[in-house]
Computed example of a mutant assay.
Amino acid sequence: MNLHMEDAMVKVGIIGLGTMGRQHAEAYRQMPDVQLSVVYDHHMDRAEAFAQEFGATVAHDLSEFLKGCEIVDICTPTYRHTEYALPAIQAGKAVVCEKPLARTLQECEQIVEAVRRHNALFMPAHVLRFFPEYRHAHQMVKAGALGAVAAVRMRRGGDFPLTKSDWYADFEKSGGIIMDLIIHDLDWVRWTLGEVERVYAKALTFRNLEHLDYTLVMLRLRNGAIAHIEGTWCDPGGFRVSFEICGDAGMLEYDSQQMVALRVARRAEAGQAGGVEVPESPAVENPYYLELRHFIDCYRTGQQPEITVEDGMEAVRLTLAAIESVRTGTVIRL
């Protein structure tokens, strides 16, 4: 990496060319200083078509792939993240890796240790932090706009995700709805409100229902706040997310199905009339572009990404605690 070559093209390679690989490639295509130079996928026909569409070279093995790029972007299914992250880090590449960081805590620890040992530039791609509504809500909470936050309710989901290999339906590969889907919200809660003390969860994950999953996860945070996160892969009506954040100075609401997406109701000061609802709608920019642009800028400047490899590991730790609670029917203390 040459920090002084600000006008040089940055060469990026993508491993895994499914839905997320395409999402990332489309984002890079909008960056005039980035070249998608090489791609790699186990399905060679998909890799050839993808490379032709985006003007990239197809690598036939990992060694060839690593020689063709400066930044490695891992978009494979979760259970293969470590398989590609470790060689990329050891090869001295900057790495951005889709969430979850890895399938097991042991694998996460291996990645964290490798990042530290090689002083690697690494970012887990927790894209929810770059969605404008969630980012704005985070900033408002941190600024004290809602006062002391007491309760959070979050909901995320739609229909069951189907792929050619159907890997989402294999719990050992995907971690089910808790690890794959609501890890977004678990990470957001920890980012915004701090560390979690206790976890209790229920889910359909182990009921042997084909292409259906649902969970409700309850968290007690160290600061005393309570959060409950609902995730569904049972809703054929389309993907939807929502949240409510309640503090002693007001409440913040968001529902992706409402036209006015973000609503803020502030409590009046003592002696004044009731709070007035003030609609706020942050400008919508592509979160995947914002996330990857941030990482490219960090690569150019040598700054550390705002999402650390440790953040990625802690998000996985929360999902595993929730899964353990589902399996055992008990409260898990962290």
Rank of each mutant, 00 (worst) to 15 (best):
Met1Pro: 01
Asn2Ser: 14
His4Cys: 02
Gly13Ser: 09
Ile14Ser: 06
Gly16Leu: 10
Leu17Gln: 03
Gly18Asn: 05
Glu26Trp: 06
Ala27Asp: 05
Ala27Pro: 12
Met31Trp: 06
Gln35Trp: 00
Gln35Lys: 07
Val39Phe: 00
Asp41Leu: 04
Met44Gln: 10
Asp45Gly: 06
Asp45His: 11
Glu48Ala: 12
Gln52Thr: 03
Gly55Asp: 04
His60Tyr: 15
Asp61Pro: 05
Gly68Pro: 00
Gly68Ile: 01
Cys69Pro: 02
Val72Ile: 12
Asp73Val: 10
Asp73Leu: 11
Cys75His: 03
Arg80His: 15
Lys93His: 09
Leu101Arg: 07
Leu105Ala: 09
Glu107Gly: 02
Arg116Val: 13
Arg117Ile: 06
Ala120Arg: 04
Leu121Ala: 06
Phe122Ile: 04
Arg129Gly: 07
Glu133Phe: 14
His136Met: 14
Gln139Asn: 15
Val141Gln: 08
Met154Gln: 04
Arg155Ile: 07
Phe160Glu: 03
Thr163Arg: 13
Lys164Asp: 14
Asp170Val: 14
Phe171Pro: 03
Gly175Ser: 09
Asp180Leu: 08
Leu181Tyr: 14
Ile183Asn: 11
His184Phe: 04
Asp185Met: 10
Glu195Pro: 00
Tyr200Glu: 13
Ala203Glu: 02
Thr205Val: 13
Arg207Met: 12
Leu209Thr: 01
Glu210Ser: 11
Met218Tyr: 00
Met218Cys: 04
Leu221Asp: 10
Leu221Arg: 02
His228Gln: 09
Glu230Ser: 09
Gly231Asn: 13
Thr232Asp: 01
Trp233Thr: 08
Arg240Ala: 11
Ser242Ala: 15
Cys246Gly: 02
Gly247Asn: 00
Gly247Asp: 01
Asp248Phe: 07
Ala249Ile: 03
Met251Thr: 15
Met259Thr: 11
Val260Arg: 10
Leu262Phe: 10
Arg263His: 05
Arg263Asn: 13
Arg266Met: 13
Arg266Val: 13
Ala270Cys: 08
Ala273Tyr: 04
Gly274Phe: 14
Val278Asp: 04
Val278Glu: 13
Ala283Thr: 11
Ala283Gly: 00
Ala283Leu: 15
Tyr288Arg: 08
Cys298Ala: 01
Gln304Lys: 14
Pro305Thr: 00
Glu310Asn: 06
Glu310Trp: 06
Asp311Gln: 06
Glu314Asn: 12
Ala315Lys: 04
Leu318Phe: 10
Ala321Cys: 13
Ile332His: 00
Ile332Asp: 07
Leu334Lys: 04
